[in-house]
Structure formats: C-alpha cells, structure tokens
Amino acid sequence: MAPFFILDQVSYCYPGSLTTGVCQVNLVLEPGTFLGVLGANGSGKSTLARLCCGLLKPTTGQVLVDGYSTANEEELRYIYRQVGMVFQQPDNQFVAATVEREIAFGVENRTLSSEVIRQTVGLGLSYFGLETLRNADPHSLSGGEKRLLSLADVWVLKPKLILVDEPLAMLDPGAKQRITRFWQDLRDQGQSMIWFTHGLAEVLSADLVLVMENGRAVWTGPPGELLAMPEQARAWGITLPPATEAADRLGVKEPVVTNEDELVSVLWK
C-alpha cells in the first residue's frame, strides 16, 4: 500500500528558544500501522505529536497526509479530518456542557443525518463505558473518565490516524483493557495509530517503534529488538516492562520475558 503519512526531515524550534524541539525526523507510515514513539521526558515526543497533527508547523521539512502538507492552511482542513489527536491533558479539548454533547460536537460538524449522529454518539458512549455519565459535565469527571471521553471524542470521527499521548495515564486495569481492545478494532478497520509514551510495555504489539532522544529519532525497529537491548533502552529513558526488569534483576537472561505468565513459567518449571 502507498504511504499515507510522511515526515520528511521535520524540524521544529520553539520561538525564543535556542534548543531544537524536534530535529530532522523522517518517517513513512502505511495504512493500518501501529507506531510507538518512545522517549524520556523532554525528548521531543509531545512536540512531534503536535507536528504530526498540524497544531505546530515544522520550522523546516514537511509533514504530509495523503500528499497534503500541514504547512498549507488550505490543506490543513483536510488533514484535521484525517488525523485525530488525544492530548495528555484531556481538559484541553472539552468544549461542551455534557458528555453526550461533547461526543456529538465533532460528529455534528460533518454533514450527517441526525439519526446517524444519534447512533454514532450512542456507540461512542457504550464503547468507552460512558453511558451512565452521558449527562455529566465533562469537567466534573474523574481523571480516568476524562481520558476515556477524550478517546471517544476522536474515535467517533473515524480518522485515518489517531495520535495518543500517554493514553493509559490515570486508567485502572479495567479501562486499560478497553483501550487494548480499542487498538485491535482500529487495526482491523485499517486505521493507524501513533502512541507516544515512555513505557515499552504499552507498545509491545506495535508494528514499529521510534525512539526519541534530545529531539532526534535515534532508533527505529520492532519492539522485540528493543527488549533485547535493555541497557541501551534504559539509557534512552525508556521504561522496560516490569516482567522484563524483574527477570533481568533475578538473573534470568534467556528467554526474553515480557509478561508475568512467562516469568512465572520460567521461575517455576
């Protein structure tokens, strides 16, 4: 399939700052790809996320979505429909007075019948377990509920690419399972996702991971290869899966362990 999302030598400098936020990053994504972007605090992950969705324009280089450039104001309208962003701080994106109106807001800006809008909003509420909160004020929700709502807001718009910044923060294990299923469904529908985090465990099922350090993309490859180089991963500020860390500390070198089931069977066999 043809690449639909391209970062071509993308750099960004914050106004008034001498240091580069993001420096010469290249990336090509095909539809249905799950990319994990890993890195320490301050490595440039959130800046890269904002460049990917057109909220920031590259100082040099270009971000292309289906051939349209984020640097061009006219083309941004198209890009905003294709790329959805879920922020680290969910409050930043809420505009409506109730959870239901909040989910409806984006859908209503598409030319759809009221019946389709009603169905889509209902689907978003049930998919993210928000039915009982439909009349609540988004700003009155708990941190975890806000996170689910911000995902629902973007999900109902069916963008080709969803960008999520630390999506598992403030979620309990039940909600995390919802998010895992959410990703599987996206992949099945040919949608793509870029997941920005410092935890490798969150992106173990990614097709590819890109590691950021001081604004530069310093490594690209499948997540399994990163597991095999734990010292380097730690040096980049990446958090390894707890089972991998524990195995390392207990002197289990082979096989590479990524979860509790595997570690239990290695330790008691």
Partner: peptide
C-alpha cells in the same frame, strides 16, 4: 498527592 506519576518517565518516577 493525586496521581503524581502522570507524565513522568522511569527516571522521573
């Protein structure tokens, strides 16, 4: 402290 680790990487935690 309410969710103090949000947004903190491993070394930060």
């Amino acid at each position: 402290l309410d969710e103090p680790t949000i947004g903190l990487d491993g070394p930060g935690q």
